[in-house]
Simulated assay, not measured.
Amino acid sequence: MIRMSRTGRDGATTYYRAEKRHSDAGFLINCTPCGMYPDDESIPVRLSRFGALVGVVDVIYNPLRTRLVRAALKAGIPAEGGLYMLVSQAVAAYELFTGKKADGGLTDRIYAELMGSLENIVLIGMPSSGKTTVGKYIAKKTGREFTDTDRVIVKNAGKDIKTIFAESGEAAFREIETETIRSLSCGNTGKVIATGGGAVLNVLNIERLKRNGRVYWLDRPLAALMPTSDRPVTSDRESLARTFHFRYPKYKAYCDVRISARKNVPTTAEKVIAEFVKHSSPSSGDRADRTRGEGK
C-alpha cells in the first residue's frame, strides 16, 4: 500500500512521484478533501497515469460523484463515492452505542433512501421535447423543487434568450449557460432540473450535472417537434431538423436513461419517475450498476 500526499511528508510519496513510480497500482482511494464541495472542480491525481486500475473509491460524499469518481467511470473503471461508507459508519456507530445488532439490509436501505432523496433528476432534449412541462409534473408528483436553466438565465440577464443571441451572439449565451449549470449543480441536491436544448454542446455541463444527478433524455421524434420562435437555432423547420440531427448523437451519448417522449406529459413523466424509483431501490441491484464503468 502506498500513501500519497501533496507534500510527501511523514513517509508519504507525492502525487507526482506516485504517477511516475506506481502507475501499476490496482486500486486508488482518495481520503483527502480534494474534490469536495464547494471546491468540486478539483481532482487529486490524473487517472490516465494509472493504467492498471481496477477500482477507485473517493470518501467524499458531497458531491455524490466527485470528478475523480466521474473520471474513473468514464474510463470504464468501477468507482464509488463516500456516501455508502458514511452510512456504514452510522450503522456501526448505532451498534456500538446501543449494543444492538442492525439487520443485514439496513445499510443498503438507508443508502438507497438517501440517494433517492439527494440525487437530482436532470432532463435533457431538444426544444419543444417537453422538458419544462414534464419537469414540473415530476416536481409536483415527487415534492421536489423544479429549476429550468433557461428561465434562470432569462431572470438573471433581465432579457430573453432571443435578445441575448441578437445582442451578444450564441458563444456568449453558451458561456452564460455553462456558468448557470455550474451554479445550479454545485451543492444542489434533490431537485428536478430541466436544461436548455443546447446544454449538451459542452461536455463540461454534463459532467457537472452528473456529479449530483441522473440524466434523462426526453427523446421526441423530429416530426413531433415544433419550431420555437424564442430559440434562434430552432426557429423554423429547416433549422430545427439541422439542429436535431447534429445534437441527437450527443443526447444519446450523454444520457443515463433514454425516455421516449412520443406520448403526453403525464405518460412521459411517469416513465421518468418509475425508472428513478427503480434506480434508487435497494433491491434493484442498481448500486452495483452505478459503480461500474459507463462504457459511454
Rank of each mutant, 00 (worst) to 15 (best):
86 L>E: 07
76 G>R: 11
65 R>T: 03
47 L>C: 01
117 S>G: 08
96 L>C: 10
73 L>M: 01
69 V>P: 08
66 T>D: 05
113 E>I: 06
104 G>R: 15
41 E>R: 15
40 D>W: 00
119 E>V: 12
103 D>S: 12
84 Y>D: 11
117 S>N: 12
109 R>P: 01
56 V>K: 03
102 A>I: 06
92 A>N: 12
118 L>R: 15
39 D>A: 15
91 V>G: 03
48 S>L: 07
103 D>Y: 13
67 R>H: 00
55 G>P: 05
78 P>T: 00
116 G>K: 06
45 V>I: 15
50 F>D: 06
88 S>W: 00
45 V>R: 01
35 G>H: 11
70 R>T: 11
68 L>F: 01
110 I>V: 15
37 Y>I: 05
90 A>S: 13
111 Y>S: 05
98 T>W: 02
99 G>I: 01
106 L>T: 15
85 M>R: 15
63 P>V: 01
58 D>N: 04
34 C>A: 10
35 G>W: 09
118 L>E: 10
81 G>I: 07
43 I>N: 11
109 R>V: 06
69 V>L: 02
119 E>W: 05
64 L>W: 03
116 G>N: 02
48 S>A: 13
111 Y>Q: 11
116 G>D: 08
69 V>R: 05
71 A>Y: 00
58 D>L: 06
39 D>V: 03
104 G>Q: 12
96 L>Y: 07
112 A>V: 03
57 V>Y: 12
118 L>C: 07
70 R>C: 10
110 I>E: 01
72 A>K: 05
72 A>S: 12
71 A>N: 08
77 I>M: 03
94 Y>M: 15
96 L>P: 00
96 L>M: 11
82 G>H: 02
69 V>H: 00
56 V>T: 07
65 R>P: 01
42 S>Y: 11
54 V>Q: 14
62 N>G: 02
72 A>D: 08
81 G>P: 05
104 G>L: 13
45 V>A: 12
99 G>K: 02
53 L>V: 00
108 D>P: 05
46 R>N: 14
81 G>C: 03
52 A>W: 05
115 M>F: 05
75 A>L: 14
